[in-house]
């Protein structure tokens, strides 16, 4: 009888073991196993989209998207000022406009500047709500200078590199981490005018950067990726939410309970006016910097004068690269100060 009962339980234990093995596989599939994908529609022979994408994909393979020898990282001949040269500079826009929940304790300190070939960048450090926030004020002569790049110049899942590594390979002067598209299985991905993923993520608010450099916020429930491409989208980032729209904060303090209210490292990008952008990265999870909530970040972006601002992947991913160096304190695996590997970056060259 005992033997029979034991036999009866064997399949139960076998199933539990199978469940364990499956879970390990699922975790590996999520975080470790690398998969390289083709751009959306490349398999659809004869379609108009396929023609566009295949030519664009070749362009990517040729290295035109990432890896161009623009300005060699850390070796540019532009005018770069070191930190401290203009220390004490203040940003009136940010200093004058602080709200109840966002306390800017001191005015921005210039970390460095860059000016060459129609690209003008001033990077400043602020103290906002016990957090170091790095702001790159960017003015471009052409929208072509604002681009994105994939890790290993490859579109896929679990294909990752550090922001500095991707930026360096792309010849970027300035870069911030993107939306970590590789961590999601849905959400539009359009980069440098190429449609890579057209699977909509329900109610996802996307940042659309058009060919002329203007920003738009679109909901994936309302528009297809192909329509965005047809409308001139050059970059589509699917993370969010939108922080500022029409010059006003567009998130509430109680929105997205949990993620939003927690103080964490953050990354955001905003536009002030034509070809004038703010790249923002905040520290967090350290004794020096607690981090910002989404609402605090939104208020800060608004105070900088952004008409549209958008939240990108944060936490350990938050990294700002400028002139060959990582200038913030990115955290990885908890509170270790080290760059996390990410799927993609937005950069200026």
């Amino acid at each position: 009888m005992k033997k029979q009962r034991k036999r009866g339980r064997i399949w139960e234990w076998l199933y539990m073991a199978l469940l364990g093995v499956f879970t390990v596989y699922a975790l590996l599939d999520t975080f470790v196993i690398t998969k390289v994908y083709a751009a959306a529609g490349t398999a659809a022979a004869g379609a108009e989209t396929a023609d566009t994408v295949s030519s664009d994909t070749e362009e990517t393979d040729d290295g035109d998207t990432a890896g161009d020898a623009g300005v060699a990282a850390g070796d540019d001949s532009g005018t770069v000022a070191d930190a401290g040269d203009t220390a004490g500079d203040t940003d009136a826009a940010a200093a004058d406009d602080t709200s109840d929940s966002t306390q800017t304790e001191e005015a921005g300190t210039v970390i460095g500047t860059y000016s060459q070939d129609g690209v003008s960048i001033t990077v400043k450090e602020y103290r906002v709500s016990d957090t170091s926030v790095y702001v790159a004020d960017v003015t471009l002569a052409s929208a072509d200078s604002l681009q994105s790049a994939f890790a290993d110049d490859t579109y896929g899942k679990n294909v990752t590199e550090t922001t500095s590594s991707i930026a360096s390979a792309a010849g970027a002067v300035l870069a911030i981490n993107g939306d970590f598209y590789g961590a999601q299985e849905s959400g539009y991905v359009i980069r440098n005018g190429v449609l890579y993923r057209d699977t909509a993520s329900a109610d996802s608010e996307d940042l659309v950067i058009y060919k002329d450099g203007t920003f738009g916020i679109e909901n994936e429930s309302d528009v297809t990726a192909q329509e965005l491409l047809d409308n001139g989208a050059e970059q589509v980032l699917s993370f969010g939410p939108a922080l500022v729209e029409d010059g006003s904060v567009s998130v509430t303090q109680n929105e997205e309970v949990g993620k939003a209210k927690a103080s964490n490292p953050r990354t955001a990008i905003g536009v002030i006016d034509s070809l004038h952008y703010e790249f923002v990265v905040s520290d967090g999870r350290t004794s020096e910097s607690t981090g910002l909530s989404l609402y605090q970040l939104a208020e800060f972006m608004e105070s900088l004068g952004c008409t549209t601002a958008y939240n990108l992947d944060g936490g350990g991913s938050s990294t700002m690269y400028f002139n060959g160096e990582v200038i913030n304190q990115p955290t990885t695996n908890g509170r270790t100060i080290a760059e996390r590997k990410v799927s993609d970056v937005l950069y200026v060259k």
Binding site: Y25, A26, D29, T30, F31, A183, E185, S186, D313
Partner: peptide, 8 residues
């Protein structure tokens, strides 16, 4: 972590 997987 902020990710998804169809296997779930």
């Amino acid at each position: 972590y902020g990710t998804t997987n169809r296997l779930s």
